[in-house]
Every structure is written in C-alpha cells, then in structure tokens.
Amino acid sequence: MVARQLDEQLARVFPVGRRLRVLDVGMGRGAQALRLARLGHQVTGVERDPRLIATARGTLAEEPDGIRERVRLVQGEGRDTGVHFLPGSFDVVLCHGVLMHVEEPDPLVAGLARMLAPGGLLSLLVRNGDALAMTPGLTGDWTGALTALDSTALLPRSRSEADGGTPAAPAPEGRADRLSALTATLHGIAAPLHTWYGVHVFAGRTPGAPAPVCSVAPDALETLLAVEERAGRTDPYRGVAELLHLCGVRG
C-alpha cells in the first residue's frame, strides 16, 4: 500500500520518466529500495542493523547487473546522513518505520530534509499517535485504550517490516507521532506537507478483521487493497489508521 501511495506522489511531483536519486533511510531488508531500482532510479539505502543489510546485499546480488549498479548500500544511522552525503544530494528521501524508534524525531527529520534538492519529496511512514487507542478499544482492552488516549508511547507488539511486509521480530517499546506535530515540523524545515495517507485502517486490527496483506488469500487480496487504498485517502477513516504516510515537498 505504501508503494502505491509513493508511486502516486512521485508521478505528481516529478516529470514522467525522470530518473530520480533516492535515499532510503532505515531500509530494512531493502524491499522498497530494490523496487525503485528496478523502476530505473538510483537508490542509496542506509541501515544500521548488520543482519538486515546483509540480507539486502544477498538479495541484490541476485539481480541483473543493471539493477545492482543503481543501488548503493551503506551501514549507518539515519542521523548520520550529513556525514555520508552532501546537502541537496537526493530527489527523494524515504524514512519508513524509523521515527517510532527515535526518542527525539525532529532533528532526524530536519537532517533528512537537508538531503533533499529543491522540489524534492520527503516520505515518512510513522505510527499514528492520534489513533493508539483504536486497537485496544476494538479488542475490549479498556484499560489499554484509556491509557493510549493520553499517550504517544507504544506497547510491545509484533509487527511486519514497513517496507516489504516481511515478518520481523516483536517491536520494542517506542513512540508514535501526531499528525499536527509532524505537519508543524515539516513546515518548520521548509518541506511542508504535500499530502498524507492512512495505512492499515482496517487490516489486522481486530480478530474479526482481515489479516495483514502478507497472509491474505490471493482471491481476497485485491478487494482488501481496494478497501485499504480508498479508506487511506478518505476522511474520517485515514485519521484513525494505524500508520500515517506523510509526504512533504522541499521548497
């Protein structure tokens, strides 16, 4: 779903057919980075976990020469982009599923924005701090729901890797972001919010709801994607999604 939303924004922000310079910070196993390289873009992936970057390198090694030549993998922290790259070096910067594990996200977001060339696109995938009470509330965990109404702290839970849907280890405790706060942050770093989507509005939130996309039967997948895609761009549904996908454009 995030890939569909991202492609929609790339088509809106950049001329058709333009080959883009992409930075994927916290790329995980590299699913999104590899997908964009297959589309012809030049991609740099940054990942701090040596196991994940080793997996990404192994997957990349199986690709044709032309695709491998378009991908650079860097082991490092997202906050160190200023060490590895010059300001304005990229047309697109992705930071998916990272901010929830960063105690103070604003400096990281500001650093990512500095990597963007004028007119560049910043894509953030974050936990929705305005909807943390939804999942415990829908499952009858009233104490958890009451606590979540006044908090942006996350409880431990299993999750799927944000960029590719591959099952991952249980997520540690972390934090979530509120739409209003991130909107203000993007405005303050000269990459104002261009558009935003909800991700995981219905899928996987309650025992009776459809399972996450990675485990849905093929004959039901397109219907699930159609529902999630429409809900993820429609009020009020997108406002209570489990995740938010925000796209800012550098002025």
Rank of each mutant, 00 (worst) to 15 (best):
A169D: 08
C247M: 13
E242V: 03
A54G: 12
T143Y: 04
A171H: 04
G140H: 08
T143C: 09
A211Y: 06
L146I: 11
A3Y: 07
T152N: 14
A148V: 13
T234Y: 09
L20A: 02
R238G: 04
G119E: 09
I189Y: 08
V16I: 06
D65Q: 15
P87A: 11
R51Y: 10
L138G: 07
L36S: 04
A3C: 11
H200Y: 09
R57C: 07
T234V: 11
A133P: 02
E228R: 01
P136F: 07
A226S: 12
V74F: 07
P87I: 06
R19Q: 14
P107F: 13
R4L: 13
E63Y: 08
Q5C: 05
I53Y: 10
D130L: 03
A54I: 10
G111P: 11
Q32W: 08
V83K: 14
M27W: 05
G76R: 03
V98P: 00
G208N: 09
P207R: 14
A211K: 11
L246F: 04
F85R: 00
A54D: 13
S180T: 11
V25L: 00
A113R: 03
R48C: 10
D49Q: 10
T206P: 02
S180D: 11
R79S: 06
R205F: 08
G17T: 09
V25H: 01
A241M: 12
R127C: 00
R178H: 11
S160A: 15
T234N: 12
G248Y: 01
E161A: 08
V213D: 13
S160V: 12
A162N: 07
